[in-house]
């Protein structure tokens, strides 16, 4: 049995986007400076950015969170891909994308909303974020929220550091956190 020609395959994937029937359209951006990124969008907005994607696990997770109609459909990612490219080239400091945080618990969403106000090239601390959401003793819980951030880079958890200025941790690994902070000029 011969396979489906690429042009036919791509045509279907594009038509699936136009049909508006997808729960999540995703693609893997293979050649970003921080390695391969899986990016997913729903009809509401960006719903997933994943480092070192293991597609099998990621797809299962997206299907569980947003519905089973998950399809690789690069066309739906044009805008997100464009903004990420600009960011990595140092030509963009803020993202102009809608987010879909349906699958994220309420407390996490509150913390992520505060996080989203931390500007390019600046840093904050876990404790400061905790205080801003009215839970000053919850620095550790804020750390967990950062670790489970569904939209790293775009929701800039790399800008959150320890009280003593140490990088502390990063869901995508400390190397990437350091690279992103250097890109933004927050680290020399």
């Amino acid at each position: 049995m011969t396979g489906v020609p690429t042009v036919l395959d791509e045509r279907f994937r594009a038509a699936a986007v136009v049909s508006g029937e997808l729960d999540v359209a995703y693609d893997v951006l293979d050649d970003t400076p921080v390695g391969p990124l899986l990016v997913g969008v729903s009809e509401r907005g960006l719903c997933r950015i994943g480092f070192d994607p293991e597609p099998e696990a990621e797809l299962e997770r997206l299907a569980r969170q947003f519905g089973p109609r998950v399809l690789r459909a690069p066309k739906a990612l044009d805008r997100a891909r464009g903004e990420l490219d600009e960011y990595f080239e140092g030509r963009r400091q803020a993202f102009d994308l809608e987010f879909d945080l349906r699958a994220t618990p309420e407390f996490h969403r509150r913390v992520l909303a505060e996080l989203n106000r931390v500007e390019y090239g600046h840093t904050t601390t876990y404790g400061a974020l905790a205080a801003q959401v009215g839970a000053p003793r919850a620095a550790r819980a804020v750390g967990t929220v950062m670790n489970r951030n569904p939209l790293p880079i775009v929701l800039p958890c790399h800008r959150v550091v320890g009280a003593n200025g140490s990088l502390t941790g990063y869901g995508g690994g400390l190397d990437r956190k350091e690279w992103l902070l250097r890109l933004e000029g927050a680290l020399l």
């Binding site: 279907f12 797809l59 109609r69 998950v70 690789r72």
Partner: peptide, 11 residues
């Protein structure tokens, strides 16, 4: 996920 279903049966 639909991707798996599609890949499994498209050919």
């Amino acid at each position: 996920p639909f991707e798996r279903f599609y890949e499994a049966h498209k050919d």
